[in-house]
Design a protein around this nucleic acid. Structure first.
Length: 681
DNA sequence: TAGAAGCAGATTTTT
DNA sequence: TCTGCTTCTA
């Protein structure tokens, strides 16, 4: 037991020991939240609570696996079963595997990702913006509104249209036995709601429930938790309302703000000691967030000491910003700092480009977190689709993706004929190809006809032996269909081929590591996997603030602190959420925090003049005197470099039309140049 | 059917 | 400015 409590403070111990009843843990940034949860898991087990009655829910696989390993290290004696510790979605998946028959579906369903969802909805040819349709459908599902109700209650024509597409989409999913991410939560809820005995039995099974990042739960997750605590109130939620940054995605900050009202006799514990950052960093974070009204009042108290001043740097344009930051990073590296300890954060992804240029020019290795995720890359989805078709040849959705990849002359017209035929016979495409040869033979050229049949035979052959020959499956697929070979022939294919090889390796590892698992299990697992972390790669991290949540860096640059960009202003701006985003960004820094803004940026095809963010004054960095601010604009006498004219010296600086005009002496020739066309040397 | 050229649209995105 | 999608042509 000592081992558990040794490294915990009083508040954390209180959380760990309080095992019965509802408890709300308000855990500020860097306050040892993960340690507290994992200690609590270990404490429960050491007190004889059966591991099988403990459930811990997280939002990411990464958080789940980190917690699992940390909890395991706290439990010395081997336990037979480790308690279920997984994401909400994985929990939903496991639940559906056992209970989906309650809604008359079979448990060999396939999970689709948002890209698949997009393709399905697109095939209905909506005359409305796709993102809108997708997010509205998501809202319907999360609010448990059935398609018919959605159609009936829609007043505006556009919403009638969306609701109608929603209905078609749901029919499509049911027909193809597909399940989307929303379904992984909505369907379990539906089953629990309609079947009291299942609700009671499930709630009794999980007597002790913990939730990480509770501020990010949405209404549906809250309802699910209500169901899970149907027979008891042993719910421990841990989160930080000040770090709620997914409101735009349906996360409801009220869940954490009103938790003590929803659950009677809630014990509230605040973890306010920050083990991560210097006081100078914490001060500006505290100062900024204190401007929010809707929050549980908290104040992060540091234990590390004052540290360096938080610094503000400004630039004429984004190129200058990138160059300055690259230079600063070089200095850090020269002084012996580690690439992995340095990160650059921004509010919007489009700011990454100039930063990338700057880092490339300075030959600083960096990794972009976010962007297109590994499992969402086209080439990876192609292979996964092959695997899915082999796992289940009736999966029309995946079949359509691979039937002409690599190109084998089966174009859209042919596929449409097959879809038409199969739907008129109420069977899958592959069944149609097998059973109704005479019918479509006359519609197609003999070459296409042959291609289709040999493709189908290949799929069927692999499908029959899929689990017996799983260790050679990947090689068989490559031998027969040659996806890697296909991508190799395309221009600029290096990355894609490398990705394919990585995936093949991943699959082979899986087979070796879990020889008893089936192909279906592998496919289910990876459909919930978000991204491969390349943590050990030695490089500077470049990412959005959203992507940085949960991470920490010794040296941190936050760029683009300009009014309009951060806070990002537009319709639907939630200023408090923007401020929380600032709070999340600042509290990622451990020792050094540098904030940066630029007087102008190239954005959406235009150069825009910008002013510094209100967050700078709100956090106390910009006061009357700009004592911390380091101007890096152009001055007389400065050396600059132009792409064509080379290096010259600034003779005169003047402002025109919101830009800065420089008179520059290029080896005796004087030219007027806008400042954004030159770089400082 | 497949590649080339033209045109709108461009926040954040744990699963 | 750049990207990704639709339309056009061989």
């Amino acid at each position: 037991m000592d081992k558990i409590f040794d490294s915990l403070n009083q508040d954390q111990i209180e959380v760990v020991k309080q095992i019965d009843g509802p408890i709300l843990v308000l855990a500020g940034a860097g306050s040892g939240k993960t340690k507290t949860i994992t200690s609590r898991v270990a404490y429960l087990i050491k007190n004889g609570i059966p591991p099988s009655s403990i459930l811990t829910l997280t939002f990411t696989n990464k958080a789940a696996s980190e917690m699992r390993s940390r909890a395991l290290s706290l439990i010395d004696n081997d336990i037979l079963h480790f308690p279920l510790l997984c994401t909400f979605h994985k929990f939903g998946l496991l639940f559906l595997k056992h209970h989906i028959q309650y809604i008359n579906r079979s448990n060999n369903f396939v999970i689709i990702d948002s890209d698949d969802k997009k393709r399905i909805i697109k095939s209905f040819e909506p005359d409305l913006p796709l993102p809108l349709v997708m997010s509205e459908i998501s809202k319907y599902k999360n609010n448990l509104i059935e398609p018919d109700d959605a159609i009936n209650s829609a007043r505006l024509l556009n919403y009638k249209k969306i609701a109608t597409i929603y209905k078609k989409y749901e029919e499509y999913l049911a027909q193809n036995n597909l399940v989307d991410f929303d379904d992984l939560l909505a369907l379990p809820y539906k089953i629990l709601e309609e079947n009291e005995e299942v609700a009671i039995q499930t709630s009794q099974r999980y007597q002790y429930i913990m939730v990480d990042e509770y501020q990010d739960t949405n209404d549906l997750q809250f309802k699910l938790l209500k169901k899970l605590t149907h027979t008891h109130q042993n719910l421990c939620v841990v989160g930080d309302d000040d770090q709620s940054i997914y409101g735009w995605r349906g996360a409801n900050i009220k869940n954490i703000l009103d938790f003590d009202k929803e659950f009677e006799d809630t014990k509230v514990v605040k973890l306010e000691i920050n083990y991560r950052s210097t006081n100078n960093i914490l001060n500006i974070a505290n100062e900024l967030i204190s401007h929010n009204r809707n929050r549980h009042k908290k104040l992060l108290k540091g234990i590390i000491g004052e540290g360096k001043d938080v610094e503000l740097i400004s630039h004429e344009n984004e190129m200058a910003e990138a160059d300055t930051i690259a230079k600063r990073i070089k200095e850090l590296l020269d002084s012996g700092e580690n690439l992995n300890d340095i990160a650059i954060l921004y509010r919007i992804n489009s700011l990454s480009r100039s930063i990338e240029d700057g880092l490339n020019k300075a030959a600083i290795p960096y990794k972009m977190v976010g962007g297109v995720k590994f499992y969402e890359r086209a080439e990876i989805k192609d292979i996964i689709s092959y695997l899915r078709v082999i796992a289940n040849p009736n999966d029309d959705f995946s079949l359509k993706r691979v039937i002409n990849k690599p190109k084998r002359g089966i174009g859209k017209a042919t596929i449409d004929k097959l879809i038409y035929g199969s739907s008129s016979h109420n069977c899958s495409i592959i069944e149609y190809i097998k059973l109704y040869k005479d019918e479509y033979k006359k519609l197609l050229s003999s070459k296409v006809y042959k291609t289709i049949n040999s493709f189908t035979q290949d799929i069927e052959k692999l499908s029959k032996q899929k689990d017996k020959n799983i260790e050679t499956l990947i090689d068989d697929i490559e031998d027969i269909f040659g996806i890697k070979t296909y991508y190799q022939m395309l221009p600029d294919s290096q990355d894609r081929v490398a990705n394919i090889e990585e995936f093949y390796g991943l699959f082979r590892d899986f087979v070796i590591q879990y020889p008893d698992r089936t192909l279906d299990e592998f496919l289910n697992d990876i459909s919930l996997q978000s991204d491969q972390d390349q943590l050990d790669e030695r490089s500077v991290s470049v990412m959005s603030i959203h992507a940085s949540k949960g991470l920490e860096f010794k040296h941190l640059f936050v760029i683009g602190l300009e009014e309009g960009f951060f806070p990002l202003l537009g319709d639907g701006t939630d200023l408090e959420e923007e401020r929380r985003l600032g709070y999340v960004a600042f509290t990622r820094a451990k020792r050094e925090l540098v904030l940066s803004y630029s007087n102008s940026r190239f954005y959406k095809g235009k150069r825009a003049r910008l002013t510094k963010s209100r967050f700078l004054s709100e956090s106390g960095i910009v006061k009357g005197s700009l004592k911390l601010e380091r101007k890096s604009s152009y001055k007389k006498g400065m050396l600059v470099k132009h792409k064509i004219f080379g290096i010259g010296r600034v003779i005169e600086v003047s402002k025109i039309k919101g830009d800065t005009k420089l008179k520059i002496n290029f080896g005796g020739t004087y030219r007027d140049i806008l400042s954004s066309f030159v770089e400082r040397v």
